[in-house]
Computed example of a mutant assay.
Amino acid sequence: MTGEGSHDFARVRRIVKTDEFSSVFRLRPAQKTAHFVLYTRPNTLPHARLGVVAAKRFAPRAVTRNTIKRITRELFRTSELQALDCIVRLARPVNTKAGPATTSALKAELRVELARLFASQHPRRAATSRGAPAPAAP
């Protein structure tokens, strides 16, 4: 699976090292939803990077954790984010071990929450489209 292009999720777009996760976690959360917390930190790369944390205590079934990661990566790839390190952390239980692992309703709810998180990080287009004020004429 070597997808080259703007919608890939190559290793350079991932946060993988423990110290990279720690440096982003040290900052305050940028945004919270019912189930997720988003942490961000500006980076010096030409693109955004993503880390996903889905703890077993909040999603006991592996299929649920994998669904969360898959939806998060998909929305991250299609979002136009500035150069940020983003960590999405599951912060509340999404289901129980006895309940269904994934349902279309759960997937839709998670997709809406994650889309809201990434949308909150879009660059402000209104401020950048006006540009700097013109210099005064002599």
Results as ranks from 00 to 15, higher is better:
67 T>E: 15
85 D>M: 06
58 F>Q: 06
96 T>D: 10
76 F>Y: 05
112 V>D: 13
65 R>G: 09
98 A>D: 14
113 E>P: 00
39 Y>H: 07
88 V>H: 04
109 E>H: 14
42 P>F: 04
64 T>Y: 03
46 P>N: 06
63 V>C: 13
57 R>P: 08
91 A>G: 11
91 A>L: 10
106 L>R: 01
59 A>C: 09
54 A>F: 04
63 V>T: 15
90 L>H: 08
105 A>M: 10
66 N>V: 02
120 S>R: 03
88 V>M: 05
81 L>K: 05
104 S>R: 15
80 E>Q: 12
103 T>D: 03
71 I>K: 01
91 A>Q: 08
97 K>Y: 09
43 N>P: 04
53 V>L: 00
108 A>L: 05
100 P>R: 14
86 C>S: 04
80 E>R: 13
41 R>Q: 15
116 R>F: 13
100 P>K: 14
83 A>K: 04
60 P>L: 09
91 A>T: 09
72 T>S: 14
58 F>G: 13
90 L>R: 05
86 C>R: 00
43 N>T: 02
39 Y>A: 01
47 H>N: 04
72 T>Q: 07
79 S>I: 08
117 L>M: 10
79 S>M: 06
122 H>L: 15
115 A>M: 11
75 L>T: 01
57 R>N: 14
66 N>D: 05
47 H>Q: 07
